[in-house]
């Protein structure tokens, strides 16, 4: 007999041209279920008009990002146990800093356009991947192997970023991390964008992106590294190289 908890989901609701409200649903759950499971249950058994996004259910598609009690979570891999206690109220809200389309669904087009602007790589040669403990030395022929990029384009980092809250054109964590992944010495054409008003200098070191990123991208560290790359590229340019 699995453990049983009673939890209440307090879900943000908003349809076009209507005022927003919160609907509450109390349900019996197994605490080791994921938040997304509970939301799907609400949709299946309580309210068919609830809009939310998901596809893969295993942290790959990046569609199921929401705010749970004010913190950005990838809901398909966040267990109820990890964010709640028995009889808790869980407030579920859409990501911030994206226009709401319906209920928990936001328009992430802006993020995808920015990812495209830096030509974010979906896959990269394994020899260029910044992984925790790479083999002592890659062999040249290893570059035939590719690796999926860590970033799911889930938008959690954008939602958590204080600068992204007020400045729409600011590239933000995931696109800057994608630029860092390119390395400016391999892609000098990205320098103009990265060194621009909407680029790497606008980060104010809150490191919220790194705190919420569900996929080890560590955008905060990558932004800092991108600064180093930018400065050295600028200095190289300055000396005409």
């Amino acid at each position: 007999m699995p453990e049983q908890w009673t939890v209440t989901l307090r879900i943000y609701r908003q349809k076009t041209n209507e005022p927003s409200r919160y609907d509450t649903f109390t349900l019996e759950v197994n605490p080791d279920e994921y938040i997304l499971d509970a939301i799907e249950r609400v949709w299946a058994f309580h309210d068919r008009s609830l809009c939310f996004r998901h596809a893969c259910h295993h942290s790959t598609c990046g569609a199921c990002g929401m705010r749970v009690n004010g913190v950005e979570k990838l809901t398909c891999i966040t267990t109820i146990r990890s964010v709640a206690r028995p009889n808790a109220v869980l407030t579920i809200e859409p990501l911030r800093n994206f226009p709401i389309i319906s209920d928990l669904v936001v328009d992430m087009g802006e993020l995808y356009r920015k990812m495209e602007a830096v030509e974010a790589r979906a896959v990269l040669p394994i020899t260029e991947a910044e992984i925790e403990k790479p083999p002592h030395q890659w062999k040249t022929e290893d570059s035939q192997y590719v690796r999926l990029s860590d970033c799911l384009e889930c938008g959690l980092c954008i939602s958590a970023c204080p600068v992204a809250a007020t400045s729409q054109p600011y590239l933000g964590p995931a696109p800057l991390a994608a630029a860092q992944d390119h390395r400016l010495d391999r892609r000098p054409d990205l320098l103009t964008l990265i060194d621009s008003e909407h680029g790497v200098w606008r980060c104010h070191s809150a490191f919220e992106c790194t705190a919420v990123c569900p996929s080890f991208v560590d955008p905060g560290r990558r932004i800092m590294d991108l600064r180093k790359q930018t400065i050295s590229a600028k200095i190289r340019h300055f000396f005409g190289k």
Partner: peptide, 8 residues
């Protein structure tokens, strides 16, 4: 629909 980035 007040969720997009805005100076306010």
């Amino acid at each position: 629909m007040n969720n997009q980035p805005a100076p306010q």
